[in-house]
Design a protein around this nucleic acid. Structure first.
Length: 592
RNA sequence: GGUCCGGUAGCUCAGUUGAAUAGAGCAAUUGCCUUCUAAGCAAUAGGUCAUUGGUUUGAAUCCAAUCCGGAUCACCA
């Protein structure tokens, strides 16, 4: 149990003993004591002073004295300032905690519960390569899944490959028209980029063809639709749906190029999946629910044959679920997929990691599932995150203003190499080890950069300023880890009983207090589905260690006892940093 | 227009279940490498927490109004 929870229990008991009053734990606020006051943790008295009809001053002193009297080994002193009761916790408590825990690499992990969870993330379109926005999705999804695993959930990672539709046909048409049979193999271009290039080329050609039509008096919308290349793409989609063999073969071929490219990138960034779903398999599945919804009176049919749901009573609009031509739309497919995933995994919760532009869509999806009476409806949840924007605005593949995932990783690797060579600390590494180190640093910088901010907020990436390796960054934390390991390579802590030690230095105690909070941070990150809590925490630990390291020598400590304490403190810090960074999908090097 | 989200230092962001004098990083200025890795440490400077009013012992945090920015309300996915 964490120290703050333990303290809450003690406060409840003391209040009961002193005043025969039953307080609830929710009434008690405990904060770490501000540095300008004496103490480690502070009980805010205001929150329950009224219930007890005491002055904060009197209550503070009575409660402080009672806590000290009953827990002489835990608390050493107290002081009351205004409505705050500051308590000092004994050094021996902290040292004991450190000695008990310093080798525990599963510190903060929870035993398994019986909750089954799906995290659906990544979910790319197969007409373009992965960019920075997709990376945020990938890193978030992966990290949330790992955090939930650590917290005891049984987690399955899935992706839905958006492998069909008009956007795919655009790439296909452009390839047919302009490629002259070129392939990724013949051009040496990575498959997803290769196909993406034709998607962009479609856009260029489309725009070109629209101009004369608009000049001839057509509206923009009409021109968009009537441009010959668009007509060809629409025709191709129809052929695809009718199972035209030639179109299907081309579709399969081009998708396979894309998957080859994706797999390479996924491998590099560490995304993995327990199961992939394909839209081409699932896009017809929702149709069955239309009939079910009509029978249950949840849906209604309009004169033209289209089917709708009326959500105005829920503060939303009417929403189409089946086109008048009888084909299903996005939301209908999602209904089918949700049920399919339930059949496959029997989930209690199913998270969709999707950008916040789809908040409305996900709200509607959940509502429809609830109205259809699906048993899994309440477990369907949107893990919404903000888009990554450039200083110039949103990234759009067809406008070419994207930060490509493969490009930025390569750029960061270059910076990592350059910096490493300048510093010259790993001259004995062989080329394989060096390459691995550059990967570790580059991906560490990128993942930390994208995970350190609150997922719900949109974020701005400035390519000019690029990604830093100093300060609040992944490489800084990696560096601190490498530094600790360097000490531990020279000397290991001896596993021994706690020896009597007084006088923990300020920074020593600060570090132990921080480390003790790790399980609470994981719990918070899990409850909020928010990896940034862990990123901020990992940085704070590294930063605190760095100050400690500068001020206190580990290997040349004043005494053997101090040295042992500091070795243990170093080891535990390294363990916690490695663990927290792992939950973010970031590796930590032994040397850098 | 309806709904939802946001506005904190020059920039990027913490802090938002109310709690003591609002914190980091970058950028700027100044010190510190013969001692465990300087991708570092220490320090200085930088704030009308969008605005106004309200609730409270106490408000960046809660409420109301206003201003600004974004998303969404498709027979696209």
């Amino acid at each position: 149990m964490s120290i703050t929870n333990e303290m809450k229990g003690l406060v409840l008991k003391s209040i009961h003993d002193l005043y025969s009053y039953e307080l609830s734990a929710a009434d008690i606020t405990i904060n770490t004591t501000k540095p300008e006051f004496e103490g480690d943790y502070t009980i805010v008295l205001f929150s329950f002073v009224k219930q007890l009809k005491k002055s904060p001053e009197q209550l503070g002193h009575e409660l402080g004295a009672e806590l000290l009297k009953n827990n002489p080994g835990l608390f050493t002193k107290y002081n009351v300032i205004k409505g705050f009761l500051n308590l000092s916790i004994s050094d021996s408590y902290w040292v004991n905690f450190l000695y008990q825990t310093y080798t525990d690499t599963s510190f903060g992990h929870q035993p398994g519960n019986d909750q089954r969870v799906i995290v659906e993330y990544s979910s790319p379109n197969t007409n373009k390569p992965i960019h920075l926005g997709h990376l945020r999705n990938n890193f978030l999804g992966w990290s949330v899944a790992e955090i939930m695993k650590t917290s005891g959930y049984t987690v399955f990672k899935t992706a839905i490959m958006n492998d069909r539709g008009i956007h795919i046909c655009k790439s296909m048409i452009a390839w047919k028209l302009f490629a002259n049979g070129a392939t990724p193999a013949s051009t040496g271009i990575k498959g997803d980029h290769f196909v993406g290039d034709y998607y962009v080329q479609f856009g260029v050609e489309h725009k070109k063809e629209m101009e004369p039509l608009i000049a001839a008096g057509m509206s923009k919308e009409e021109a968009e639709k009537n441009a010959p290349i668009m007509q060809a793409a629409i025709k191709m989609l129809q052929d695809w749906e009718n199972g035209d063999e030639e179109v299907r073969a081309l579709w399969q071929k081009m998708n396979s190029w894309v998957y080859e490219g994706f797999n390479e990138t996924y491998k590099k960034i560490g995304s993995d999946f327990d199961k992939n779903y394909f839209e081409s398999d699932t896009y017809l599945m929702g149709k069955g629910f239309v009939e079910e919804g009509l029978q249950k009176g949840v849906f209604f049919k309009k004169e033209d044959g289209s089917v709708w749901i009326d959500l105005t009573a829920d503060g939303l609009d009417e929403k189409l679920v089946l086109r008048k031509d009888g084909t299903s739309v996005y939301i209908t497919q999602d209904i089918g997929l949700a049920e399919k995933k339930y059949e496959d995994f029997h989930y209690d919760q199913s998270f969709h990691v999707i950008a916040d532009e789809q908040n409305y869509h996900m709200k509607v999806l959940k509502l429809i599932l609830q109205k259809l009476g699906k048993p899994f409806a309440n477990g369907v949840q949107h893990m919404s995150y903000g888009m990554v924007e450039l200083p110039s605005g949103r990234m759009k593949t067809r406008e070419g203003n994207v930060v490509d995932a493969d490009d930025i990783i390569e750029e960061l690797k270059k910076v990592a190499r350059q910096k490493t060579e300048e510093l010259g600390k790993v001259k004995d590494f062989n080329p394989g080890e060096l390459n691995e180190l550059y990967d570790t640093i580059a991906l560490g910088a990128l993942k930390f950069f994208l995970l350190r901010v609150d997922p719900k907020k949109r974020m701005i990436f400035n390519p000019e300023e690029s990604i830093d390796f100093h300060g609040f960054t992944g490489p800084f934390i990696q560096f601190i880890h490498a530094r600790i390991k360097s000490i531990l390579r020279k000397e290991q802590a001896v596993n021994s009983q706690q020896s009597a030690q007084d006088g923990l230095l300020k920074l020593e105690k600060e570090l132990i207090i921080l480390l003790e909070q790790y399980p609470a941070i994981i719990e918070q990150a899990c409850a909020e589905h928010n990896p940034s809590a862990l990123a901020i925490y990992a940085y704070t630990v590294a930063k605190t260690f760095s100050s400690f390291y500068t001020e206190c020598s580990v290997l040349n400590a004043e005494s053997e006892e101090k040295k042992q304490l500091r070795l243990k403190l170093s080891e535990m810090t390294a363990n916690v940093i490695a663990s927290a960074m792992h939950l973010l999908g970031i590796k930590v090097p032994e040397r850098m």
